[in-house]
Write a protein that binds this DNA or RNA. Structure first.
Length: 817
RNA sequence: GCCGGAGUGGCGGAACUGGUAGACGCGCUGGACUCAAAAUCCAGUGAGGUUUGCCCCUCGUGAGGGUUCGAAUCCCUCCUCCGGCACCA
């Protein structure tokens, strides 16, 4: 490479080996103040990509920084090893999912180690090991006992050609990703976790997550989707059968001109019986509803009629594709004047539109609306409520309807129960047995784990692959001893990732999922770092799981992740890196060329962690140059032994240059510490280190003791970012200690400011001059001085000085007429 | 449509609570070293104007208004891009 003998590969491998042999990053409970740092574990696909490197590098900086502050840091890693791609590999390449997965894990582990990350490898978790997934089964049984698990029919994506169930991500534009056959929906009996039991808690307690990004919190709030309204009973005419509808606008009930049932509403069967000609129409609508996205509204009028309970009006009952069975009661009152969707529908089918809320402007002609009016206003056409404000009417009418026994207040959520059944092989078997005599029975705890059979043929055809493994399917009922069949679905892999952080936090774990005492010591995770794509599902499921385990008595806490950082994407040529775009950068190649420290340094320097990062090869060279400059600076100027009395640097400044160096050292320590601690702005921290290095290059007396001390500080500050070169240079300077055990330098407040401050002088807010003053100089003295300056006189001559604003040590603004 | 986030030099990005806009890096230009190149080191680098030259002036943070002594930062209106949700009654 050149003059410098900085050889990244050699020193990086050397220190990686050292850390591994010394178990530098092994952690044990109950000592000192704990700090649990976690990055989202990788899915076991092929190899590490730049996104992983970014994620794990950010974490590593924080881990090493916290270690230097004396924290007992828990920093584990593992592998999210169950999932669909393993089965795809089996189909495409004929490799057993298990072999594919373990081969990938070996590769990933090797690559992660080459990144020099400060992991406690002894805590590694691999979710496809039976030692791990048996506890998924155990939790399933516990949840079952608690009534948090139930089974119901639910539609699954079905490809008629492949004769298999597809995951949502395998359905592309309504077609099978493999053969492009249109996907149909098929009702299957599936297992659900009752996450909706926790909907209110999960929503309310979002506000306790003070250190989570606002966007993630907003996304979860929207996802849970709480709404308050009334359930109002309409009556079927003439027999009085009750049809409850849910609305958030009970104030508009006098404007209901029809009633709509979801095509899946139970009453629809009766409607079809009465009027068989609508059957095909209804079936068409049912199909339409299963397709994602908005379709044109359509419906059909049934032969049924309903009575509006407040005015006894007889209104028609329609069946329409825009009403969902899963939300509310599956039936709505149609108020076209005040609901956009009802309006669109009523226009299409010429249904009457009755205004009951008059907007404040109040000049709209009845029956001639261009669009629905959804805002607040004055009640009209609403009997005794006329003239009342709609907001008030909402309360009064609710009370009134309640007192008549026709309505009850209701809260609804968009959040649905979590369907955990997957018709897949490579996942955790659901521990359930179907017995003809005893029915659906859970596998007894003592029989866990229900092991995934090794012998399997995966074809991508048919239903659950486990159905064809007779030795798996056929079993005996644990209660009556008779012949029985096993459940052949496996669990959603989000179950695996909903508690892995608890498993990490426990060293004793053969006979238990985790040690409660240890987990109570380590939890919650103090800092969690990962991609924004997990903002909803993974993070919400983990919050649910933690609460469920709390209620079973296994953990104390409710929130698993105290502080969350969602890192931005890595962009190249204006697009997210992806194989299909062909813009993928292989981290291994970068490491081979520049070393890990350069790669880490660049990723940290190019953008703050929560912003997207633009990949630029040239930027790497800049960071490499920076590291080489440090290398040269230290190697050429180190002298004597590493001196561990850093306080000297605060006291020993004798001449002007030394005093300036002191000041810069102190400012740099402050800047780097605060950038890491408060904001994770590693880019600006590194920028200040670059400025520091540039200054040290210009420093004249490089043989002085104070200069050597400055170099030591530089190395300490550098360590979290580029640990290998920092550790090597420290050792070259004679330090025997591991830098992660060395204390972080502290700055002295009184040495941050210089004896002279530069004050900017403005006239009417425009920069005109600068002046250096003593920091404690009085406003009056500075004023006197400033107003006498020729430059300033030029602007004040002949003008009236109205005001002078002085911001001490920073700025003086002279305001003239 | 609704909810977030972002728009700053040729580029990535700084400016933390309103107080010198453009730190740091890349790129580019010039110089030193060299037979030459690479590497390295030093200097310059928002746009425009003015000047022999240091100087100095004007404009400038997506657009337009406003608040303020002072706005990239706060308020209003709008545009563009990115992400999430999307018939949830």
């Amino acid at each position: 490479m050149s003059v410098s003998d900085y050889n990244p590969e050699e020193i990086e491998k050397k220190w990686q080996k050292y850390w591994e042999e010394k178990k530098t990053f092994a952690s044990y409970p109950y000592r000192r103040k704990k700090y649990y740092l976690l990055e989202m574990f990788p899915y076991t696909s092929g190899s590490i990509h730049i996104g992983h490197v970014r994620n794990y590098t950010i974490g590593d900086v924080v881990a090493r920084y916290k270690l230097m502050h004396g924290f007992n840091v828990l920093h584990p890693i593992g592998f999210d090893a169950f999932g669909l791609p393993a089965e795809n590999a089996a189909i495409d390449k004929g490799i057993h999912p298990r072999d594919w997965t373990y081969r990938n894990i070996d590769n990933l582990r090797y690559q992660l180690k080459r990144l020099g990350l400060s992991y406690d490898w002894s805590r590694e978790v691999i979710t496809c090991n039976k030692e791990y997934y048996r506890w998924n089964q155990w939790f399933f049984l516990k949840f079952y006992e608690k009534g948090l698990v139930y089974q119901k029919k639910a539609p699954a994506n079905w490809c008629p050609t492949c004769r298999t169930v597809l995951a949502n991500e395998q359905v592309i534009d309504g077609r099978c990703y493999r053969c492009e056959t249109p996907v149909v929906q098929k009702d299957l009996k599936q297992w659900f976790f009752k996450i909706t039991n926790y909907a209110e808690q999960l929503l309310e307690e979002i506000e306790n997550l003070k250190d989570w990004p606002l966007t993630v919190k907003k996304m979860q709030i929207n996802w849970i989707g709480r709404s308050e309204g009334m359930e109002i009973n309409f009556e079927l005419f003439p027999n009085g059968f009750k049809i409850p509808v849910y609305t958030t606008r009970p104030d508009t009930i006098f404007g209901a001109t029809y009633l709509v049932l979801s095509p899946y509403h139970p009453l629809v069967e009766k409607a079809i019986k009465d009027e068989p000609s609508i059957k095909s129409e209804v079936e068409q609508m049912r199909k339409e509803q299963l397709i994602k996205g908005e379709v044109e509204k359509r419906g059909v009028q049934s032969s049924l009629w309903a009575i509006n309970p407040v005015n006894k009006e007889k209104i028609p009952i329609w069946i329409a594709n825009y009403v969902l069975m899963e939300y509310g009661t599956g039936a709505i009152m149609g108020v076209p004047a005040h609901d956009e969707r009802d309006f669109e529908f009523a226009k299409k089918y010429n249904l009457p539109i009755k205004v009951v809320v008059s907007p404040p402007e109040n000049n709209f002609s009845r029956g001639n609306l261009k669009q629905a009016y959804v805002g607040e206003g004055k009640m009209v056409n609403s009997d005794r409520f006329n003239g009342m404000l709609s907001k008030q009417a909402r309360e009064k009418m609710s009370e009134w309807m309640q007192s008549m026994g026709i309505a009850t207040p209701r809260v609804h959520y968009k959040l649905r129960d979590w369907c955990i059944s997957r018709q897949r092989y490579w996942g955790t078997p659901i521990p359930i047995i179907y017995c003809d005599r005893c029915g659906t029975v859970p596998v007894p705890e003592k029989d866990l784990p229900v092991e995934l059979p090794a012998e399997i043929e995966i074809t991508g055809k048919g239903g659950s692959p486990l159905k064809n493994v007779e030795s798996f399917v056929n079993c005996t009922c644990p209660y009556c001893g008779g012949k029985a069949l096993r459940e052949t679905d496996t669990m959603d892999t989000f179950v695996d990732s909903s508690w892995y952080f608890l498993r990490y936090a426990s060293l004793k774990r053969e006979k238990i999922p985790f040690d409660t005492q240890e987990v109570n010591y380590w939890m919650p995770v103090d800092q969690y770092i990962g991609g924004i794509e997990h903002a909803i599902l993974h993070l919400l499921y983990s919050r649910f799981f933690t609460r469920a385990l709390r209620d079973i008595g296994l953990v104390k806490i409710s929130e698993p992740f105290k502080r969350l950082l969602t890192q931005g994407m890595v962009i190249k040529d204006g697009a997210k890196m992806s194989k299909s775009k062909g813009n993928v950068v292989d981290p291994q190649k970068i490491i081979d060329k520049y070393g890990v420290d350069t790669l880490r340094g660049f990723i940290l320097f190019a953008a703050p962690p929560d912003a997207d990062l633009e990949w630029k090869e040239e930027g790497l060279q800049g960071v490499h140059r920076f590291l080489t400059r440090i290398w040269k600076l230290v190697v050429e100027n180190k002298a004597g032994e590493w001196e561990d009395k850093f306080e000297k640097i605060y006291l020993n400044g004798k001449n002007r240059e030394e005093c300036e160096l002191q000041r810069i050292v102190n400012r740099t320590i402050k800047k780097v510490s605060e950038d890491i601690e408060n904001r994770f702005h590693f880019n600006t921290a590194l920028a200040s280190l670059m400025e520091f290095v540039n200054y040290l290059y210009r420093y004249s007396d490089k043989k002085s003791k104070i200069f050597k001390e400055a170099l030591q500080i530089l190395i300490l500050l550098l360590y979290p970012f580029t640990p290998h070169i920092a550790q090597e240079l420290a050792s070259k300077m004679g330090l025997k200690e591991d830098l992660s055990h060395h204390s972080w330098p502290e700055y002295k407040k009184q040495l941050l400011e210089s004896e002279r401050a530069t004050v900017v002088i403005q006239v009417n807010g425009k920069l005109r001059d600068k002046i250096t003053v003593a920091p404690n100089e009085s406003k009056e003295n500075i004023e006197k001085e400033v107003l006498n300056r020729e430059k300033i006189k030029k602007y004040t001559r002949g003008k009236v000085i109205k005001k002078i604003i002085y911001v001490p040590t920073k700025l003086m603004n002279i305001v003239v007429d």
